[in-house]
């Protein structure tokens, strides 16, 4: 990583406690546009707390957070979304009974101007067309039809969810266990979408317990243990064994 580049996301000495439990201790790292960063660690290592801090679910007790060079304080997840960060949680955030196009635009619907220029009706046609174009950009080819999301396979659903995040994120997408519960081939689809999102110039934070996936798709891996960042190195410097050792703390 060249140090002259401006990081798109930077955390400095983030601390977070729940009561007497210290969840994050002096967490610092930089993330750049166009890279996939793996965030790994055992259960309770602080991954979830860290994601929540970045995505605005809660605020850190102390420390600084910069997005695109500007220091930020989130009041709600909407603030982080407005700043260009999209988060995809473990359970896919799609509405099963709506079509793919409707899901892509959920909460950001396009409308045709109504009689008063305000009370607009949904412009389904434009939404479907744009959804198709945007999904193609990240290499997703799902049949865009009347079909609802509930009629897609698990892998297609996850791909659509990531495509949705990639379409709306200006800077960072956070993916929490996106390949969980997916079969081998479906996981490959998802990894393909992650690479495509990176090639679009996004920074992808990839959280997973499936270490082969992490090693395959990431450029850099941050390992957390007991609320601290214990290692932050290029992916090429890890093997499955050394990564597992770092996560569990049996070697360093």
């Amino acid at each position: 990583m060249s140090t002259e580049r401006e990081p798109i996301l930077e955390l400095r000495n983030i601390n977070k406690s729940y009561g007497s439990v210290k969840a994050l201790t002096d967490v610092s790292f930089k993330a750049y546009a166009g890279e996939v960063i793996g965030l790994v660690g055992d259960n309770g290592a602080g991954k979830s707390s860290l994601i929540k801090t970045i995505s605005g679910v809660h605020n850190a007790d102390s420390g600084e957070l910069f997005v695109d060079g500007i220091q930020r304080h989130w009041k709600s997840p909407h603030d982080s979304m407005a700043a260009g960060i999209e988060t995809l949680y473990q359970d896919s955030g799609l509405a099963p009974d709506l079509t793919i196009g409707s899901n892509i635009f959920l909460g950001r619907e396009l409308t045709r101007n109504g009689p008063l220029g305000k009370f607009g009706f949904l412009d389904q046609k434009s939404m479907e067309r744009q959804a198709l174009e945007e999904l193609e950009k990240v290499g997703i080819t799902v049949p865009l039809s009347k079909r609802t999301v509930s009629q897609l396979s698990g892998g297609q659903r996850q791909a659509v969810a990531i495509g949705r995040a990639a379409m709306w994120a200006k800077h960072v997408i956070i993916l929490d266990e996106p390949t969980n519960h997916l079969g081998a081939r479906q996981s490959l689809e998802v990894l393909k979408v992650i690479r495509a999102a990176r090639d679009q110039g996004l920074c992808v934070l990839f959280i997973s317990h499936t270490l082969p996936h992490v090693l395959e798709v990431t450029d850099r891996i941050i390992v957390m243990r007991l609320g601290k960042v214990v290692k932050d190195s290029l992916t090429s410097e890890y093997t499955v064994e050394s990564l597992l050792g770092t996560i569990t703390g049996l070697n360093t």
Binding site: H78, M81, S92, G93, D97, L98, S102
Partner: peptide, 25 residues
């Protein structure tokens, strides 16, 4: 139900309220 945001959101909330909330609804 078919042509306005409230209708669309009711389908979304009924299918997955958490997803709807995260979408800013």
């Amino acid at each position: 139900m078919n042509k306005t945001k409230p209708g669309r959101y009711i389908y979304a909330i009924g299918g997955n309220a958490e997803a709807a909330r995260r979408a800013g609804i």
